[in-house]
């Protein structure tokens, strides 16, 4: 088990290997971000406001380009509100005007009222630039791990530790 420590060349190779895995994951994330033009191309659902379509922990894939047509009513969009740093996944229910200046209103399928109350003070509508993507694909439950990790931060340390140990100690 400690053979890695006795052979510095091998130890260096394994640390390099670990770095490679991390940077590959990072590159894939950023690559997806460039392709979809979204700062966060994959999001995890955190609330039940879109039930029964999306549950907590479901994974959503976003697309933020308008090739053929504008973002329109009925699409499920992820948007940011000024002053709040949690993105919200809701459905677009109203659109007034066209282009960048169009006024957009959202609503959660499971909420009885629209999102006017969720927006910043004095803000009645959101705009296209507040949207970080429209939901195009869906995988259930897989993202629940990240909810566990954010609710129990010690799990993060444990997982990173185990991952590091496994990569460093395993021999090719």
């Amino acid at each position: 088990m400690l053979s890695a420590l006795q052979n510095p060349r091998q130890a260096a190779a394994q640390i390099l290997n670990f770095g490679l895995i991390l940077s590959t994951a990072f590159m894939m994330w950023k690559g997806l971000s460039v392709i979809s033009d979204s700062p966060s191309p994959i999001v995890v659902v955190l609330s039940g406001s879109m039930e029964p379509a999306f549950q907590r922990g479901d994974l959503l894939f976003l697309w933020n380009r308008n090739f053929m047509e504008e973002t329109k009513v009925g699409e499920i969009v992820v948007y940011n509100v000024k002053g709040k740093n949690i993105p919200i996944v809701h459905r677009l229910v109203r659109k007034f005007g066209v282009g960048e200046a169009a006024k957009l209103l959202t609503k959660g399928d499971n909420n009885s009222a629209d999102d006017t109350e969720l927006y910043a003070k004095g803000q009645d509508y959101i705009e296209r630039k507040d949207i970080i993507g429209s939901v195009v694909a869906y995988i259930p439950f897989v993202g629940y791990v990240t909810i566990l990790l954010s609710e129990h931060p010690w799990l993060k340390t444990v997982m990173l530790g185990i991952m590091g140990l496994v990569v460093v100690l395993q021999r090719e």
């Binding site: 329109k72 009513v73 009925g74 229910v93 169009a102 399928d109």
Partner: peptide, 13 residues
């Protein structure tokens, strides 16, 4: 003349 305004008046799951 483009239909540039749209609003949902009814929906159902």
């Amino acid at each position: 003349v483009a239909l540039s305004n749209e609003a949902v008046i009814w929906d159902m799951i």
